[in-house]
């Protein structure tokens, strides 16, 4: 029993990583109805930016805030320059665009910062949290930050006019224009916010997985899995999904023999497909209605 509870605790702490990423995924899905395959790479690039600033001697929290701002602006810029012209194009074209962005960012990060792995600092330290061997202060801090972001997003979407306008623009763009919402800018804003959330995820994850251009691929798949499990339309679901995926992964690894670290990605794959087939709307998402 103790093993079980310990594994759950460990699952929650890895789950925080996925929850972070899933939040960013849901954010962009809400804004543009697409999954951004370059989301992980954008987060990775942001993390490199913060690392670079720290190399230049900028203190952690200042670098953190500056990176948030950078990512927000960069997200908006990417949308304005690259994806706004594709707004009416077929889905295939958009997917091609995401793939192109993925390649460009991954490659550029490698060119600028090299493909070797780098240590990344944590502001929370890595001592055992409250004497527990399973969860470190960094992981506890990460869980805290994830929940904080979730709370912030909840208030933003539920209680601010801008949040309401963004929800309206995502749900019914034409009606949104007819009440005077500039839907095009709402999309750009969604990109900016998703990029900023992604950068937080990257900066939280980097101390755990180390910093390198390919660090986010696995995390992104898990982020997708978490978002799909929780429901792509629900930020709350994304976070719950993230923790559940983390717990699931740990339990499977502990109790099913032969499933070790090497099966991480296949587990995520199986999970994504199972959820999509059994309950495509996820646990907390609203059902997807297909229009004829």
């Amino acid at each position: 029993m103790e093993l079980f509870t310990n594994q759950i605790l460990a699952g929650i702490s890895t789950g925080a990583i996925y929850a972070c990423m899933a939040l960013a995924v849901v954010m962009i899905y809400q804004a543009i109805d697409h999954l951004n395959f370059a989301q992980g790479e954008m987060a990775m690039f942001s993390t490199f930016i913060s690392w670079q600033m720290m190399q230049w001697g900028v203190p952690y929290w200042l670098a953190f805030v500056l990176t948030l701002i950078f990512s927000f602006i960069a997200g908006i810029a990417i949308e304005r320059v690259l994806f706004k012209p594709l707004a009416k194009a077929p889905i295939l074209t958009n997917v091609a665009g995401f793939i192109a962005l993925y390649s460009i960012i991954n490659s550029c990060a490698g060119l600028i910062w090299d493909f070797t792995i780098k240590q990344y600092p944590t502001p929370f330290g890595s001592a055992p949290f409250l004497g527990s061997q399973l969860i470190s202060t960094h992981q506890a801090g990460m869980i805290g930050i994830t929940l904080l972001m979730l709370l912030g997003l909840f208030f933003f979407f539920q209680y601010t006019r801008m949040g309401l306008a963004m929800r309206a623009a995502a749900a019914m763009p034409e009606s949104a224009r007819l009440v005077g919402i500039n839907t095009s800018w709402m999309i750009a804003l969604g990109w900016g916010m998703a990029a900023a959330i992604g950068s937080v995820a990257g900066m939280m994850i980097a101390p755990v997985v180390f910093l390198e251009p390919n660090m986010m691929l696995g995390v992104l798949i898990y982020g997708f899995a978490a978002a799909v499990l929780g429901g792509l339309t629900s930020p709350f679901g994304a976070v719950v999904g993230g923790f559940l995926v983390g717990i699931f992964e740990n339990l499977v690894g502990t109790y099913i023999p032969g499933v070790g670290n090497e099966l991480k990605l296949p587990i995520a794959l199986a999970l994504i497909i199972t959820v999509l087939v059994i309950k495509p709307a996820g646990l907390f998402g609203r059902p997807i209605v297909k229009r004829v």
Binding site: A168, A171, M172, E174, S175, L178
Partner: peptide
């Protein structure tokens, strides 16, 4: 078709 925001 009224343009109602059905999910809100």
């Amino acid at each position: 078709g009224r343009g109602t925001f059905t999910s809100l």
